[in-house]
Lab assay of single mutants.
Amino acid sequence: HSLRVHINGKDFEVHNADEHVIRALEELIRRGADADELKEFLERWKG
């Protein structure tokens, strides 16, 4: 899957995101994670 996440006016393109990554991202958003947390998660995932 390809996923586009809009954080703090920046678009993050997440390519080849598997279900696990997408679910983790949705969980963060549901918990009310702020932009920094989401960005950190995506950067860690992209490795």
Rank of each mutant, 00 (worst) to 15 (best):
H1C: 15
H1R: 14
H1D: 13
S2I: 15
S2M: 15
S2W: 14
S2R: 14
S2D: 11
S2A: 07
S2F: 15
L3I: 15
L3Q: 06
L3C: 11
L3S: 04
L3G: 04
L3F: 15
R4G: 09
R4Y: 09
R4P: 05
R4H: 14
R4D: 06
R4V: 15
R4I: 15
R4M: 11
R4L: 13
R4T: 15
R4E: 12
R4W: 07
V5M: 04
V5R: 01
V5A: 03
V5T: 02
V5C: 04
H6G: 02
H6Q: 09
H6N: 12
H6A: 04
H6R: 14
I7V: 07
I7A: 02
N8S: 05
N8I: 01
N8M: 06
G9W: 01
G9N: 02
G9Y: 01
G9L: 01
G9C: 01
G9K: 01
G9E: 01
G9Q: 01
G9F: 01
K10L: 04
K10C: 02
K10Q: 13
K10D: 04
D11V: 15
F12V: 06
F12H: 02
F12W: 07
F12T: 01
F12G: 00
F12Q: 01
F12D: 00
F12S: 00
F12Y: 14
F12C: 02
F12I: 07
F12K: 00
E13R: 03
E13T: 09
E13N: 03
E13G: 02
V14C: 02
V14E: 01
V14N: 00
V14D: 00
V14W: 03
V14F: 11
H15A: 06
H15K: 07
H15L: 08
H15S: 08
N16V: 07
N16Q: 06
N16M: 06
N16G: 08
N16K: 04
A17N: 03
A17V: 14
A17P: 07
A17E: 08
A17K: 04
D18I: 03
D18C: 05
D18P: 15
D18H: 07
D18W: 03
E19C: 09
E19F: 06
E19H: 11
E19P: 08
E19Y: 13
E19D: 08
H20S: 11
H20C: 06
H20V: 12
H20N: 12
H20A: 12
V21I: 11
V21Q: 06
V21G: 02
V21S: 04
V21P: 01
V21W: 04
V21R: 02
V21F: 11
I22C: 02
I22W: 06
I22N: 01
I22Q: 03
I22P: 00
I22V: 09
I22Y: 07
I22G: 02
I22K: 05
I22S: 02
I22M: 07
R23K: 10
R23F: 13
R23V: 06
R23G: 06
R23P: 02
A24N: 06
A24E: 11
A24D: 07
A24F: 07
A24L: 10
A24H: 11
A24G: 08
L25I: 10
L25E: 00
L25Q: 00
L25M: 05
L25H: 01
L25S: 00
L25V: 07
L25R: 00
L25Y: 04
E26H: 10
E26T: 14
E26V: 14
E26N: 10
E26P: 00
E26A: 11
E27H: 10
E27M: 15
E27N: 11
E27D: 11
E27C: 13
E27A: 14
E27Y: 13
E27K: 11
E27P: 01
E27W: 13
L28V: 03
L28S: 01
L28R: 03
L28W: 10
L28K: 03
L28F: 09
L28M: 12
L28P: 00
L28D: 00
I29T: 03
I29Q: 03
I29W: 11
I29M: 09
I29A: 04
I29G: 02
I29P: 00
R30F: 12
R30L: 12
R30S: 10
R31Q: 10
R31I: 08
R31Y: 09
R31D: 09
R31E: 08
R31G: 09
G32T: 02
G32Y: 05
G32H: 05
A33S: 07
A33F: 10
A33L: 07
D34Q: 11
D34F: 06
D34I: 05
D34N: 11
A35T: 12
A35G: 07
A35Y: 15
A35E: 11
A35H: 10
A35I: 15
A35M: 11
A35P: 08
A35W: 13
A35R: 04
A35Q: 06
A35N: 06
D36W: 12
D36G: 07
D36H: 09
D36F: 09
D36N: 09
D36P: 05
D36R: 08
D36L: 08
D36A: 09
D36V: 08
D36Q: 09
D36C: 03
E37R: 07
E37V: 08
E37G: 05
E37N: 05
E37S: 08
E37Q: 12
E37P: 01
L38W: 05
L38G: 00
L38R: 00
L38S: 00
L38F: 11
L38I: 10
L38M: 07
L38P: 00
L38V: 11
K39M: 15
K39A: 14
K39F: 15
K39P: 01
E40N: 11
E40K: 13
E40G: 11
E40F: 12
E40Q: 11
E40W: 12
E40A: 11
F41N: 03
F41W: 11
F41A: 09
F41R: 02
F41Q: 04
F41K: 02
F41V: 06
L42R: 01
L42W: 13
L42N: 01
L42G: 01
L42E: 01
L42H: 03
L42I: 13
E43C: 12
E43V: 14
E43K: 14
E43P: 01
E43F: 13
R44L: 12
R44V: 12
R44T: 13
R44P: 03
R44G: 08
R44K: 13
R44Y: 08
W45P: 02
W45G: 02
W45Y: 12
W45H: 05
W45F: 09
W45N: 04
W45L: 06
K46S: 14
K46R: 09
K46V: 15
K46H: 10
G47K: 06
G47P: 09
G47S: 11
G47D: 09
G47T: 09
G47Y: 13
G47L: 14
G47M: 13
